[in-house]
Design a protein around this nucleic acid. Structure first.
Lengths: 151, 151
DNA sequence: CTTGTTAGTTAAGCATACTTAAATTTATAA
DNA sequence: TTATAAATTTAAGTATGCTTAACTAACAAG
């Protein structure tokens, strides 16, 4: 068991409230659009990291290239992503969100962050500053730790 | 589009780093145990909210009672949860984690929070206090907002 | 220009997670 | 006590997501 410091407890409590709410929100949104989680996640990846090749998808999601290709198929058919030839290497493909796909994700993000506004409304200016500073600090450190042993 | 305040930006940045990392971590852990996400989520629910009836599961996950029952089957067969009669109403069942199931979830939690320790190591005492206070504040408010429009 | 490698697709097959519909058992109310 | 409602389960059928294996096309090197 990890030693329970105050920071540790604070983070856990926050995550309990927050991670749950957030994951649940995303799950609902994905459902409401008729997309499965894998399909939705694939779009999120593209939203965050931009266009990518099929093999990149396959590595990130730890699935076979075949699975990635099939997953992409459905999204292409729905007009949410496009599969183009990579001009530099015609074997490879470039997957990217279509306008329609991007709008869908952005709509989800907006819905998801609505409660941030609600929360903000309940804070004083001082508290807002305090929280911003704390989060920025954590984000910075979190990014440093992003030596993420992916494989 | 939501107005972009500093707090807003801070929260979004934090979420990008952490939500992603955390969700990915859970997903990997679930995979490593051989459980599917729905199976794993069901166990997490029980870990957080304790024993519950089949219909509760069905409502929380927004699936039919039939689906919930089938999902439970697999976990029962794996010895991770138990399905008992509810003594107050013998039509109903009480689902709960077995010892084995609880240990599995706890192991996942430990793994997931390992980075918290890493992060903590990079902070000064002042920073730790600052972050704890900020998170506790947000958690409190987050819980207040938990008027969660479930349906 | 052939030979091997890389990127991706297609097809067949399996497991899982759903659904609806019908059955079972227990509770509740007239 | 009898009828209705509630909490599940079972069965049958569908869609999705994955895998392996076989295939195509493009690049890279000798």
């Amino acid at each position: 068991m990890t030693k329970q410091t105050r920071l540790n407890r604070s983070i856990r409590a926050w995550m309990d409230v927050f991670l749950h709410r957030s994951m649940r929100g995303w799950w609902r949104f994905a459902r409401s659009t008729g997309l499965s989680m894998p399909q939705f996640s694939m779009m999120m990846q593209m939203y965050h990291y931009g266009a990518c090749g099929m093999s990149e998808v396959s590595e990130r999601f730890e699935i076979t290239p075949a699975a990635a290709s099939q997953l992409a198929d459905k999204l292409v058919q729905s007009g949410l992503i496009m599969r183009q030839e990579n001009p530099n290497d015609r074997r490879a493909k470039l997957l990217d969100l279509t306008q329609k796909g991007r709008e869908l994700i952005e709509q989800g993000i907006e819905e998801r962050y609505r409660w941030v506004a609600e929360m903000e409304a309940r804070l004083t200016d001082e508290q807002r500053t305090q929280i911003s500073e704390a989060l920025d600090l954590m984000t910075r450190i979190g990014q440093d730790l992003e030596v993420d042993p992916v494989h």
